[in-house]
Amino acid sequence: MSRELLRDHWRLRVNTDTKSRLQGRDFGRLARTQPPYLARWRRNVPFTVFILPALIVYSIVVILPLIQTFRYSFTNYDGLSPEYDFVGLENYRKVLSSEQLIEPFIRTIGFSMVVPLLVTVMAIPLAVVLNGRFKTRNFQRASFFLPSVLSALFLGYSWTFILSSSKYGMINALLEQFGFDRQLLLADSDLAMWLIVLVVVWSQVGWHAALYLANLQTIDPALLEAADIDGASAFQRFRFITLPHLAPAMTVSVALLIIGSLKVFDLPLAMTEGGPGRSTILMTQSIIIQGLSSSRIGLASAMSFLFFLVIAVITFTQVTLMSRYEDEK
């Protein structure tokens, strides 16, 4: 019997024995003396008690506001007046028919597709490299991780200086130094959003690489060694050993990236304040503009609720698909 089979055999025995003992001492006795539903209920009491405080807090800070937002979305509430009217689906009609309101919606969804893709594509190879053995490994890990620690506003303002269209902007100063023309950069309404994507990706790659790095370190070196002995190429080792082991981390990382990208607010605001024009206004900023600056809480609530649905659908789909991928592996 091989070592692996022996190990599995012993694990099975231990699990079976433990389960039998537990059933014999506790649940089995309960099952004999009480109806099954009561036994199940009693078994769940400790878990429920532990969850209850969190559930209460969660309900107060998330569920109730969500219900309230849904209610306001059918009114013309302005945030101040206690008197407001029921307007039916008018706010939803406005959101879906106004170019000004729908543009940030579409832009945000695009943003939340591109950022996770780019971060993931860059973070995994980076994690593989940082998992190697070289002298400056710790320094490089810290360097890549640093941007994710800094305040988004600090990063935003720093990059505004770097990407400024003025001659005082760092990139333009360098371009002029080498005899090139200055570029519009953040003043270009077609380019500004891509520059924000670039900065967000740059700031996120290190953190997500750390997530993958943690998973990489759980891979049994014997597997890689065995593959190496069997003549697998570096790509094959990555494709058939490393990548499948990263699947759980990928599910979490991509979900975090999608949710974070959908809700992003501070960094784009610090970089462009939504400009030039409306070219970089994202959904959260748009909701705040409509709700608080323009005192149209009803309209902003409709935007928020639609946005919540989009986030829920996208995240649920992503987690389901990637969990299935994990299971297949």
Binding site: L163, S164, S165, S166, Y168, L184
Partner: peptide, 14 residues
């Protein structure tokens, strides 16, 4: 000019 769209108050002071 279009490039002024990217200028800030600090650029004006400069």
């Amino acid at each position: 000019k279009e490039e002024f769209l990217g200028y800030t108050y600090d650029d004006r002071i400069q």
